[in-house]
Amino acid sequence: MSNENEVLLDKGKQKDPKLKVQRKEGEPTPAFIGASWGALLVGVAAYFIGLFNAAMQLNEKGYYFAVLIFGLYAAVSLQKAVRDKDEGIPVTNIYYGISWLALIVSISLMGIGLYNAGSIDLSEKGFYGMSFVLSLFAAITVQKNIRDTQRARERD
């Protein structure tokens, strides 16, 4: 049988009692992929649920929404630029610098916004900060997993 995912059978009996899926070299494990997507979904969902239930004006909610989206994009863009550079794929210095600047600006905007938010309790500020950081980290990890999986499959 040529398919790596099929169970080996010998006269109707399994040689290996466990179904073993062969991963390609460099490909992340399904558990790591699932954990990364789970962290991203939990971080973003918690952030959005917090925003939805927050007692702030709509323009404030819009600010925190925009900062999260900007931060997610900046984090993924920077991860891609750093990895491209490391792998010898051409990356212009302007794009590399803008990617760093965008991530720094998004984190700064979140910090400044939370510092100046007088209507938000300290515990809520911590909640927004942690869900923001979790979301950024998870977005980087999901993008890395997608790229690693694609690269492992292209090697064949």
Rank of each mutant, 00 (worst) to 15 (best):
I94F: 08
N93T: 11
K20I: 09
L40C: 11
G34E: 09
A152C: 03
R155D: 07
R153S: 14
N59Q: 14
R23K: 03
M1S: 05
L41Y: 12
T92Q: 03
L122A: 15
Q14Y: 08
Q150W: 04
I140C: 04
Q143S: 15
W100G: 13
Y64H: 08
K13F: 02
Y96N: 10
L103D: 06
D148F: 04
I112K: 00
I140D: 01
F132C: 01
P30K: 13
N116L: 13
A54L: 08
M1K: 03
S106F: 07
L40Y: 04
G12K: 00
K61E: 00
F70W: 10
L68G: 06
A138H: 03
V67C: 00
I146W: 12
I94R: 07
L136H: 02
G26D: 07
A74C: 12
G43R: 00
I146H: 04
V82Y: 01
L134D: 12
F137G: 12
V82K: 11
G38P: 04
Y63I: 11
V21A: 04
G118P: 00
W37N: 11
V67D: 00
I107P: 06
A138M: 11
A54S: 11
G88E: 05
W37I: 08
D148G: 01
I146V: 11
G88Y: 12
E4V: 07
A55H: 14
P17E: 03
G129E: 05
A102H: 10
P90F: 15
F48Y: 12
L134R: 08
L136W: 02
K11G: 00
G118R: 05
V7N: 10
M110I: 09
E27F: 01
S123K: 15
E60S: 10
S106C: 04
R151W: 10
A39S: 14
A117V: 03
L58R: 14
L19C: 10
L41W: 14
A75R: 06
I89Q: 11
Q150K: 15
G26L: 03
I120N: 06
A66F: 06
W100Y: 15
G12D: 05
L134A: 11
D121C: 06
M1R: 10
R23H: 09
L109R: 02
Q150R: 15
L136E: 03
G43E: 00
I140F: 00
V142I: 07
I112H: 00
F70I: 03
K15Q: 05
A75E: 08
I98W: 13
T29G: 07
G129C: 04
I69N: 09
P30N: 08
S77N: 15
L103K: 01
I94E: 09
Y73C: 07
A31Y: 02
M130F: 14
I33L: 11
R83G: 01
A75N: 03
E6V: 01
E154T: 15
L68F: 07
Q14I: 13
Y95L: 13
I69G: 10
P17C: 05
D86T: 13
T141Y: 09
Y95W: 12
E87C: 13
A55L: 04
S123Y: 14
I33E: 05
